[in-house]
Design a binder for these strands. Structure first.
Lengths: 143, 143
DNA sequence: ATAAAAGTTAAAGTATACTTGAGGTCAAGC
DNA sequence: GCTTGACCTCAAGTATACTTTAACTTTTAT
C-alpha cells in the first residue's frame, strides 16, 4: 500500500505517517524502486500498536524507544514491563474518566433542573436531590 | 486562601493558577488590599469543574467560553447542551480506552508467554490461544 | 511534449498549555 | 534600615506533536 492509500484507509494524514516513519515507528518499512514507501501488513499492524501506545500515555519519543527495544531479542522482559505499566496507567485513566463522567452527569442534571424550574437558584434551594448526585454536589461546593 | 496554599493543596503550580485566572476561569475572584488573589470556596469548586472540563476534551479557550456563558442567566440551555455533549464525548473516550486496555492485556500476555517459552517465535506458533486474546491478535496482524 | 498527480526530503511554522524570567511591590523579622 | 518571602504583571520561552512549505523526481494522461 502506498502512503495515500494508508492515509485514506486509516484517516491519518500522509505527513503524519512520514513523521511517524522518521520517529522510527516502521523499522522494516520497504521502499519501491522510486524510493516511495510501501506499507505492508507489519506496518498496518504497527499503526494499531502506535495508536494503543499513544492512548496509553506514551510520547512519540517513548514509542520510538519501544520500537528500538523490539529490534533486540533479549528485551522481552522490558517489553513485558512496558505493557504492564501502560496497562496500569490506562486503568487509572479509565477510573478518572468515570469520575469525570459522574461530574458531567451531575451538571447535566443540574442544568436540566434549572431549565425546568426557571433558575439556578431554584435548583440550589432543592432539599431533595437524587442520592446519585449528592456526593458530586458536595465536591463542587457552590459550583 | 492565598495562591501558594491553593497550589500546595491541589498540586497545581501557582503559575498555572494565574494562567487560569487570566483565561477567565475565576470570574468572581477577589483580591486583598495588596492586590493578591484570594481564593474562596467558589474558586476551589471551580478548580474541580475546570479539571472535569479539561478531562472532557475542552481546550483552555473553550473552558473560558463556558465561564463567560455562566455570567449570563439566559444561557442555561446552552450550558445543558455543553455538558450533554461533553458527557457523550467522555463516554466515547472511555470506550476507546477499554479497547486500548484489551490490546495492552494481549501484549502483556504475549510477552509473558514469550518470556516463558523463550522467544516470540514460540508464541506465534501457538495454536491454542485464550479466546480473550484471539480478536486482538487478528487486529494486530504480525505485531 | 507537457502538465497533472503522487511521491520524496529537509527545514520552518503552528497550536496548545503552560513555564520561566525580569523587574517591581509590600509586610515581617533582625 | 534592610533583607527575606510571598505576591504581582507582562513578555518571552518551552515542549509536544504535528503541519506546511519549498524544491525536486517520477509516472501517467492529453
Amino acid at each position: 500500500m502506498k502512503i495515500t492509500q494508508v492515509s485514506k484507509k486509516y484517516g491519518i494524514p500522509a505527513s503524519t505517517l512520514r513523521y511517524y516513519d522518521s520517529a522510527g515507528f516502521f523499522p522494516d518499512l520497504k521502499r519501491d524502486e522510486n524510493g516511495n514507501r510501501e506499507f505492508g501488513p507489519a506496518e498496518l499492524g504497527s499503526l494499531k500498536v502506535i495508536e494503543c501506545l499513544k492512548k496509553s500515555g506514551l510520547t512519540i519519543g517513548e514509542i520510538g524507544q519501544f520500537f528500538e527495544l523490539c529490534k533486540n531479542k533479549d528485551t522481552l522482559g522490558e517489553r513485558y514491563e512496558l505493557f504492564n505499566t501502560r496497562l496500569k496507567h490506562v486503568e487509572e485513566e479509565i477510573e478518572k474518566l468515570e469520575e469525570t463522567k459522574r461530574i458531567l452527569e451531575y451538571k447535566k442534571w443540574y442544568y436540566k433542573q434549572a431549565l425546568e424550574l426557571g433558575s439556578e437558584e431554584a435548583v440550589n434551594k432543592l432539599t431533595q436531590i437524587p442520592s446519585k448526585y449528592a456526593q458530586v454536589k458536595k465536591l463542587l461546593g457552590s459550583n
